[in-house]
Design a protein around this nucleic acid. Sequence first.
DNA 1: GGAGAATTACGAAGGTCTTCGTAGAAAGGG
DNA 2: CCCTTTCTACGAAGACCTTCGTAATTCTCC
Lengths: 132, 132
Amino acid sequence: MSDNKKKTQFLTEVELEFMTRLWELGQATVRDVQDALAPAKKLAYTSAATILRILEQKGFVTSTKLGKTFIYQATLSKDTYQSRSLKNLSEKLFDNTPAALVARLVDDYDLTEETLGEIRALIDKRLRDDKR
Amino acid sequence: MSDNKKKTQFLTEVELEFMTRLWELGQATVRDVQDALAPAKKLAYTSAATILRILEQKGFVTSTKLGKTFIYQATLSKDTYQSRSLKNLSEKLFDNTPAALVARLVDDYDLTEETLGEIRALIDKRLRDDKR
DNA sequence: GGAGAATTACGAAGGTCTTCGTAGAAAGGG
DNA sequence: CCCTTTCTACGAAGACCTTCGTAATTCTCC
């Protein structure tokens, strides 16, 4: 009688859009989230409510009732989901070799010297910290 | 009368598995690909054939007939797909800020000093090249 | 040339995703 | 108290995904 749900690790397209809004808003009602959707991604109010209900079923958000209205909040943090996604991409597409991932990134993007400098500073900091 | 197909930019789970095999094999028959699948991902022969047919419909591979057998080859390169995926991840989850993506990466992974060094070398090379 | 093996073509079944409408409950102001 | 507005719950429709079986085709080689 165990909970045999194999949890979905990842968000679908629309779910990600909603989580992004929730991450920005912190707490939000269905109405808040619907209003915050980019014009190109507007959905009917009931669609928005459905997505949030599904997100709650899947454990990505929780809700508390205030009056007759639910207030939603993300349980999955953006940082955590960034990590999870990067890890997945690295595994599935870069032979689990983060350096290869960065290589592709710096090759593809027309990164400004400034951005490159930032990245370099990150690496240096990490190298210094590790030394300790 | 234009070709109104809105092409799917991205591979599904199973499609990615198959493309990965094709990228490794170069050219391959249904049988080859099926044999190359990881044990945990084995599929019936006809399932493998179906996936390859779908990949061809979607334009990710081409086939040529040799005798009675199709030989498949990727048209989408792994490099291209890596770029596309990274770009998508950066847009959707890192506010289009590649430096933030790298920051998360170096924070999450227990990168060895060696790996960090490799990455740093990549950045330095790019910085030097850009200077020219 | 016909039996047997391998291959391709197709469709069905079951699952998930996305979107929305309808129905009913809750709230609150006149 | 009841009308209107706002909200939740639910189910349906259509799309796509995944997997496979069956049927038809092709090849081989005795």
